[in-house]
């Protein structure tokens, strides 16, 4: 896997109309299937994932979810729906409940953890949690170095990842001296450098000003990876993800084209999701 620019960047700022049109005719939730062959395992496959925290609080009650390679899926849901718990199952930080998780066909079990964590890159909500090294370059190198990559290959990966998020010129700055938007992009670079199959973003647009929000969208659209985006920002989900999944009370409550889901006021209301004032997805093409 790599993260070359694919040309999606040109569509930034609008929703992907041709793909939306296609879905309405064939009705399947999986759209980005160009170039996908039936024998390529899905990037993420969850079957009956259930989990209760040690204090007895049950967060997940049997989640089934499949995300094909190259798809961009938004994971929506109110606070406390179990979104973060679900995300931490994807790379084996949490486990031990019922069900199974496969990443690109590889089961998430103890023996595979290192490879699973290479394949699933999680971008956490607070970039200060993710960027802990003295310079941005060190931070981006941390993941691949843990995979045993050294020397010129490591430098090349770091440079590629930083170029992909357009931070090449700030590589040697301490993260503390970057703007919030730059730090969020640096956090994306730290997982890109591991050349993952899936990038999972936790609230990628939170605390970003509109320009940083748009810049991040452009970058995410230019990446050739599977994306699972946890968010409350419904317009952002519509802009970036053709498909959305609603997680509510630890189960999947809805799964379908983002535009259809956002156009269903009753479904949104039942799951404590709300569109911003004046925003109507039906108006957009």
């Amino acid at each position: 896997m790599s993260f070359h620019t694919t040309g999606h960047g040109a569509q930034v700022g609008t929703t992907d109309r041709s793909e939306d049109g296609m879905t309405i005719t064939d009705g399947t939730p999986e759209r980005l299937d160009a170039g996908r062959t039936p024998d390529v395992p899905p990037s993420l496959q969850l079957e009956g994932v259930a989990y209760a925290y040690p204090d007895g609080h049950q967060a997940l009650f049997g989640v089934d979810l499949q995300v094909g390679r190259g798809e961009r899926v938004a994971l929506l849901g109110p606070n406390g729906a179990g979104k973060t718990t679900l995300v931490l199952h994807l790379n084996g930080i949490l486990a031990g409940g019922a069900g199974s998780v496969h990443v690109g066909g590889l089961p998430v079990v103890k023996d595979n953890l290192q490879e699973v964590r290479r394949r699933v890159g999680i971008v956490f909500q607070d970039p200060d949690d993710q960027l802990f090294m003295p310079t941005v370059r060190d931070d981006v190198a941390f993941g691949p170095a843990n995979l045993g990559i050294r020397g010129a290959e490591l430098d090349a990966r770091v440079d590629r990842a930083l170029a992909a998020v357009r931070l090449g010129d700030l590589a040697d700055r301490p993260p503390y001296h970057l703007s919030f938007g730059q730090r969020r992009r640096a956090a994306v670079a730290t997982v890109l450098a591991m050349e993952p199959e899936v990038i999972v973003l936790d609230e990628p647009s939170s605390n970003l000003d509109p320009a940083s929000r748009r810049e991040l969208a452009q970058i995410l659209l230019s990446l050739d990876v599977t994306i699972l985006m946890v968010t409350h920002d419904l317009p952002y989900a519509l802009e970036l993800c053709p498909r959305s999944v609603i997680l509510s009370d630890g189960v999947i409550a809805a799964d379908g084209p983002t535009k259809e889901i956002l156009s269903d006021p009753d479904l949104l209301a039942a799951n404590r999701l709300e569109l911003p004032f004046g925003f109507d997805p039906r108006v957009l093409g």
Partner: peptide, 22 residues
Amino acid sequence: ERGERVHLAMLSRGYTGTIPLR
């Protein structure tokens, strides 16, 4: 709590006990 979150983020990137500074 931040320490816990940082640790989580480190584990997610394959942390095995060493921080390689180059």
